[in-house]
């Protein structure tokens, strides 16, 4: 078990700074997910923890100890790669055993560890097979077993599920959550998929262009996004954001917190529009409503409207978010919050 800390870390590739003066603390025993669009620096952070691409300046601490000068193999971390990076010429057993052999673990102990881990991940019957004869899901398990057998204090995972099909991905997601619960070890997981992040994380760290946008548990990240980027990255479809009119202030609401009705409701925010598109997804329907102040995505439980029909979008006051000209969230305790609410009320049926 270990906590991880980045202190004023900067990373450049060929003189181009991808991460600048970053501070971050990853708590001991937590499942932390680094999420963001591609190129945001999340994998770079992970590789810095592993020691594969050391930071240009600043320091990385594992359990309070600066590991900048410690080789990857001696940091007590294990990593699962996106393409699994299984050694193709070795059998499943040799793959799992390789790290133990390098750490000079005795043969008897090695055999015992390999067998118990392989039972835990359901690979016991495949120990003498070559990876080329395994399916994608089984290879994924080999990579997991190889990481687990070393009993690392930190698990690093770089988009480990992205090569699996949708069904297997959901199953592995649950298995990873259970694995984390069982081991109680620090997990650092990188993904670009916000659904994965929301479903597995204790803490989400959302990044964009090398800067941390928000660091919060999934529910807070969803309900109180700290800026426009977070609001629009988390959630499917993303939060609707539009200009309030004055001073560059914006307002926003989630597609699922709006009500769609044929008659105007009594919500604080109400807007008349025309249904432009309709996506019927089974349990829910997503409408795009066009109006004078822009296009809004609305998610409804029921499928009551047809394309080109006129409808009213209503959002209650407590579901509204406001963002300042710097795109930062304006909290409800802020003195101007009430003014913005009133301004929106004034735009009813816009």
């Amino acid at each position: 078990m270990a906590s991880i800390e980045f202190v004023r870390v900067t990373k450049s590739f060929d003189k181009q700074e991808v991460i600048k003066d970053l501070d971050l603390k990853i708590e001991d025993g937590k499942f932390t997910v680094l999420v963001g669009p591609s190129g945001c620096g999340k994998t770079t952070l992970l590789r810095m923890i592993a020691g594969l691409d050391p930071q240009t300046s600043g320091s990385v601490l594992i359990n309070g100890k600066d590991v900048s000068r410690i080789a990857p193999g001696q940091r007590g971390v294990a990593m699962v790669f996106q393409n699994y990076a299984i050694y193709p010429t070795m059998s499943v057993r040799e793959n799992i055993e390789f790290g133990l052999k390098n750490n000079k673990v005795g043969k008897a102990e090695r055999t015992e560890l390999v067998e118990s881990i392989s039972r835990a991940v359901g690979l016991y019957d495949y120990l003498d097979r070559k990876p080329s004869t395994l399916s994608g899901g089984q290879r994924q398990r080999v990579a997991l077993a190889r990481a687990m057998v070393k009993k690392p204090s930190v698990f690093l995972m770089d988009e480990p599920l992205s090569n699996l099909d949708a069904k297997l991905r959901v199953q592995m997601r649950i298995e990873l959550i259970e694995l984390h619960k069982k081991l109680g070890t620090t997990f650092v997981y990188v993904t670009h998929d916000q659904v994965e992040a929301m479903s597995m994380a204790d803490t989400i760290v959302l990044m964009n262009k090398g800067v941390i946008q928000q660091e919060a548990p999934p529910d807070r990240m969803y309900r109180q996004p700290s800026n426009c980027f977070t609001a629009q990255f988390i959630g499917v479809p993303p939060m609707n954001i539009a200009e309030l009119g004055a001073n560059g202030v914006k307002y926003g609401f989630r597609p699922e917190s709006a009500n769609l009705s044929a008659e105007p409701g009594d919500e604080l925010f109400s807007l008349r529009g025309r249904i432009a598109t309709r996506e019927m997804l089974g349990s829910e329907t997503i409408y795009q409503v066009r109006s004078g102040s822009g296009a809004f995505m609305i998610k409804c439980r029921e499928d009551l409207f047809a394309v080109d029909q006129e409808a009213y979008v209503g959002v209650p006051a407590d579901k509204l978010n406001f963002f300042g000209p710097d795109e930062r969230r304006i909290e409800a305790r802020d003195s101007s919050y009430r003014d913005y609410l009133e301004a929106l009320r004034g735009q009813r049926h816009g």
Partner: peptide
């Protein structure tokens, strides 16, 4: 040979000599 395989071996605490002998050569 994918970079990740060499990196996985480094994380498995393999020396550069071991990486050559056990991974690069057989592959």
């Amino acid at each position: 040979i994918p970079e990740e395989i060499v990196e996985a071996a480094r994380l498995d605490n393999a020396s550069e000599f071991t990486i050559m002998r056990k991974i690069m050569v057989p592959m």
